[in-house]
């Protein structure tokens, strides 16, 4: 009895670590997108992209004033969706 409990605990621990590692991977990818759309396209790359226009604005300007916000939105909903799936895969959903 004692032994099986130990095994279950260890299995739980391995599964918990795998779940957390998967979560960290999703977070990292999401944060790269978060950085690129705001700091990247909106600020750092703006001078380099000044030739590309979105309507009457240049691409960097549009990302700084509107575009990055749309990307943030998509990002949060995508993360929530992906995590719900991950929760079910690892059987840790509520």
């Amino acid at each position: 009895m004692k032994v099986t409990q130990g095994v279950t605990l260890m299995a739980d621990q391995t599964s918990a670590n795998a779940y957390w590692a998967a979560n960290i991977r999703i977070i990292t990818i999401s944060l790269v997108v978060w950085f690129v759309c705001s700091f990247g396209l909106g600020i750092i790359l703006r001078p380099a992209l000044s030739g590309i226009s979105v309507g009457g604005a240049d691409l960097g300007f549009w990302f700084a004033q509107n575009g990055s916000i749309y990307v943030f939105l998509i990002l949060i909903f995508a993360y929530a969706r992906r995590m719900n799936k991950l929760d079910r895969e690892f059987g840790v959903e509520e």
Binding site: W34, G42, A64, Q65, N66, S68, I69, F72, L75, I76
Partner: peptide
Amino acid sequence: FLMGWTGGYVL
């Protein structure tokens, strides 16, 4: 202000 006060929600 636009990026800063919305990007925080991603975090």
